[in-house]
Design a protein around this nucleic acid. Sequence first.
DNA 1: CCTCCACAATCAAAACTCTCATAGGTAAGA
DNA 2: TCTTACCTATGAGAGTTTTGATTGTGGAGG
Lengths: 225, 225
Amino acid sequence: MRVLIVEDERRLAEALGQIMAEQRYQTDVVYDGADGLDYALTGQYDVIVLDVMLPKLDGFEVASRLRHAHVSTPILMLTARDEMPDKIAGLDHGADDYMTKPFDIGELLARVRALTRRQGEVIGEQLVAGDLILELSTRCLRRGDKSVRLGFKEFDVLRQLMVHPRAVVPKEDIIARVWGLDSEAEDNNVEVYISFLRKKLTFLESNVSIGTVRKVGYYLEVPAS
Amino acid sequence: MRVLIVEDERRLAEALGQIMAEQRYQTDVVYDGADGLDYALTGQYDVIVLDVMLPKLDGFEVASRLRHAHVSTPILMLTARDEMPDKIAGLDHGADDYMTKPFDIGELLARVRALTRRQGEVIGEQLVAGDLILELSTRCLRRGDKSVRLGFKEFDVLRQLMVHPRAVVPKEDIIARVWGLDSEAEDNNVEVYISFLRKKLTFLESNVSIGTVRKVGYYLEVPAS
DNA sequence: CCTCCACAATCAAAACTCTCATAGGTAAGA
DNA sequence: TCTTACCTATGAGAGTTTTGATTGTGGAGG
């Protein structure tokens, strides 16, 4: 497993590198966004730990450019503690997960493991789960030869589910990530969009469906592969 | 957000509980280490505020045992004085953060926020007893390839039993933990849910069953392993 | 060994809650 | 103006919880 760590705080970066090395990861550590992008563009890594605040190029920019270059390596983004909007921005730029500093090293390792074993693969600019393909650039959802266009909200909601297929995503999380952390959107909004999405899944005759966990949230039901 | 407060100084404990309740936390307050451990073992909390000096079991012991039982709820430990050894000991025993008394309530709230913010999605946390697997995220109960959905109450009741397999859980405890400490639920409610659960255990053809101790409560009967 | 009683288990209906799906309304952009 | 995307309201329906009545059972005392 190869990991790229892009973090300008040297002490933190070195510590991370060492700890991950102890966990049998092969690590490369760089200290600015430009280097980070160069290294990452090689596509040789299994996961990238990417700070947001970086010299030369910030983390969002790095993530965006990577995705643009069809590099699909999973990205775990590190955001500064009080910058909540960063989380949303991070996901929008193509990050797969985020953590706020200060973080627990054990949790970081757990999330890295989660990213490397994840089933929803980002291939080029698309997310895949089961027989579904979500094209990130056009916001089109395809299955076989059929395809439908998704609205922004539909797209964002579905993406949340597709990033971790089978994992239950709480409604409140969906609201936080799609509508914003301090939004007043209600559960009903999510329900409405889930309903729209289900209709489209049915239309596409996909083998994946959206499951409900009462009083909690939703998950993607993907047939055993 | 659910918070467990374990603190033997009643006045402080109550005050904390009230303040956190005002901050929209759902709080449970207990006054000794043994209760603290029992409550915490349910894994239902998002953070635990844990005093070190406690009757029955001290805070270190509680933290150790929790980690041993693979309960990963973040722990904020309260140490009596500015005793350096305590801090180290606390972190060694599995605490995630510590504060020394007397502390500023605002700082405590800030630290609790920090701890809860790093909560990742819990993927695949489960309770096991005999051939039964209780999936915490989906509230599904599995045995072999069969699986059933549990309602909220069913789930909560069963979880109480599964935390300590073979241990007798008094009905009043079940009521306190599932319906709330000051609820008006009657014994019959518990009996009804036990009945529901037994039906589902039968359906699953599990080797685990629910035993009755007359006038006291219930326990999980798990075949000798 | 039998009887009785208190407690436990079960059942079914009522009360309640949450989810789903649809329709109507609003705002922004073509 | 027309279209598109989004939000809100609503009611039907499904699922959950409570309630009260009825039936079953273990064990103490006769």
